[in-house]
Nucleic acid binder design. Structure first.
Length: 496
RNA sequence: GCGGGCAUAACUCAGCUGGUAGAGUGUCAGCUUCCCAAGCUGAAUGUCGCGGGUUCGAAUCCCGUUGCCCGCUCCA
């Protein structure tokens, strides 16, 4: 099992490198953990995925597009909860999986226990530097000092682990079940202006959603939309993940395709169900194997702070099921918080019902990079043809990086000239590739590996009657049509 | 973050117990080729991931480091 699953991922990674889909970032310097570059074919595939996504949403009359900046006002992330949740040291209980902010943990310990804990620290070899302070606090008998001191110990380098081992989990009561403390600085920090000081700190956005939320009324007013309506955005987001993993699956820099749908609080369930169904169909409509797709509904007690209901659309990767897209009922949490933090109103006024309220938001948040990897893996096929292995990417024609290859059967008798004319004609509308190197069979296989759905071949008969053959990638079957009709043929095959 | 494995040409890999690198595929040039990785001729490409150490001498042994993969952990 293990070798088999490694196999597929390794083969795809190898193909990705060889054919120019994905390279490791800064490869010549040894690579940068969790960062990848998209090569000539990869950037086309990614662009096509994004384009299909963009059309799916913004070609509707109830969804508008947006492209917000990556750097945003730091207060945005205070309102969203990201600063609070990600910059303080946290620990987890291994037993019950509960997570605690360390500065809150001390408050959950009763006074008597705190005293004992400080006595423990006073005798702890790893806490030598704190012994004096511990004894002073014990002597003072001032219990109001206890919490701050314990927090200090918890946050210290050497003394925290042995001290935490003496503490019981406030939730499940297990003793010594805590992980060591760590800071969840999930947001990348940088500075605006030349001076690196705290007042100039800004963050690279850890999600694109907030750019949509803060622009909700701008978009609504300028586009004259009425509820319910949505705002779609594609863009990079950054998270300083502790672990990167599985090729493109968990990276520090990634691209999100998000649509936030604003609706009346009473209509949330309806739209949640609607988008949940629509989004799964989208992957299938682009050729993804339905048996490798499923929903993973989040149990109510595991929901994020902002969500009322949530599900993931998961793909069965070689390493297991993994999330490609999240669909969340974010309620009025985000807009409410921005109203609170900015002092500006985020309420919507409904002329018909004369109702004024903060809309609910149904979010569909897809990972472009994860979808990219899923489409790549899903389309990867090895077939036996005449005793040889044929590697072929059966990508949907809409997603294929190159739509057609133009191949003169031999390099003489006017075939190259005719082929070049066809190429020039098709290039006006399609990404095509001209190849006259080597035997035609080899050229077909090269295109199979790149996922090119159609190969147009010019032969002797072409020179006589102006027809060409079109070879279809998956069936390897050929038809013959007039050269003048290639454009129409491709359009129907790709987009119809 | 912890533990394990790996790192040699664009890709897949060989290189045994130390004597300054090789195969297949691919790529490029030419010939030949009328339809599925055909054939012939020729060519290019590696400070053996990076940095130290041991040694007369290191791809090979040792240490460190970075990256990738696997298992935990984590993934509001």
């Amino acid at each position: 099992m293990k070798t088999e699953k490694n196999d597929v991922l390794e083969k795809v990674v190898s193909l990705a490198k060889r054919k120019g889909f994905v390279f490791q970032s800064s490869e010549v310097y040894g690579g940068l953990n969790g960062c990848w570059d998209y090569g000539p074919l990869g950037v086309e595939l990614l662009k096509n995925i994004k384009e299909e996504w963009w059309k799916f949403f913004t070609y509707r009359d109830d969804i508008e597009g947006l492209d917000a900046s990556i750097l945003m006002h730091p207060r945005v992330w205070e309102a969203s909860g990201h600063v609070e949740n990600f910059t303080d040291p946290m620990i987890d209980c291994k037993q019950c999986k509960a997570r605690f902010r360390i500065d809150h943990l001390a408050d959950n310990i009763n006074a008597k226990k705190k005293g004992k804990l400080i006595e423990f620290v006073a005798a702890l070899p790893e806490a030598a530097e704190f012994h004096e302070e511990a004894n002073q606090i014990l002597d003072s008998k001032d219990e109001s000092l206890y919490s701050d001191f314990i927090t200090k110990i918890f946050e210290s380098k050497d003394a925290s682990t042995p001290t935490l081992a003496e503490v019981t989990c406030p939730q499940c009561g297990t003793k010594g079940s805590f992980t060591s403390a760590r800071k969840f600085n999930l947001m990348f920090k940088t500075f605006v202006g030349p001076v690196e000081e705290d007042s100039n700190v800004v963050y690279l956005r850890p999600e694109t959603a907030q750019g949509i939320f803060v622009n909700f009324l701008n978009v609504q007013n300028s586009s004259r939309q009425k509820l319910p309506f949505g705002i779609a955005q594609i863009g990079k987001a950054f998270r300083n993940e502790i672990n990167t993993k599985y090729f493109l699956f968990r990276t520090r820099e990634f691209e999100q395709m998000e649509m936030q749908f604003f609706c009346h609080p009473d209509a949330d369930k309806k739209w949640y169900d609607y988008w949940k169904a629509e989004r799964l169909e989208w992957y299938k409509s682009l050729g993804m194997n339905g048996e490798r797709l499923r929903y993973h509904d989040h149990p109510k007690d595991k929901l994020a702070h902002y969500a009322k209901e949530a599900t993931d659309i998961e793909y069965q990767f070689p390493f297991g099921w993994g999330e490609m897209e999240g669909i969340h009922n974010r309620t009025n949490f985000d807009l409410g918080r921005h109203e609170e933090y900015s002092g500006k109103s985020f309420k919507y006024f409904d002329e018909e019902t004369k109702e004024k309220f903060i809309p609910f938001i149904i979010e569909t948040s897809a990972g472009a990079s994860r979808s990219f990897m899923a489409f790549l893996i899903d389309s990867y096929n090895e077939e036996e043809v005449n005793g040889e292995v044929r590697t072929v990417l059966k990508l949907h024609p809409k997603l294929a990086p190159i739509k057609a290859a133009i191949l003169p059967l031999v390099n003489k008798d006017g075939m190259p000239e005719f082929a070049r004319k066809i190429e020039a004609d098709l290039r006006r509308n399609y990404k095509v590739f001209y190849d006259d190197k080597g035997a035609v069979g080899r050229r077909y296989r090269r295109q199979d590996e790149a996922g090119t759905p159609f190969c147009i071949t010019i032969d002797t008969q072409s020179m006589e009657d102006g027809t060409v053959t079109i070879r279809e990638r998956d069936s390897m079957e050929q038809i013959r049509i007039e050269a003048s009709k290639i454009g129409v043929y491709l359009f129907e095959k790709i987009y119809a």
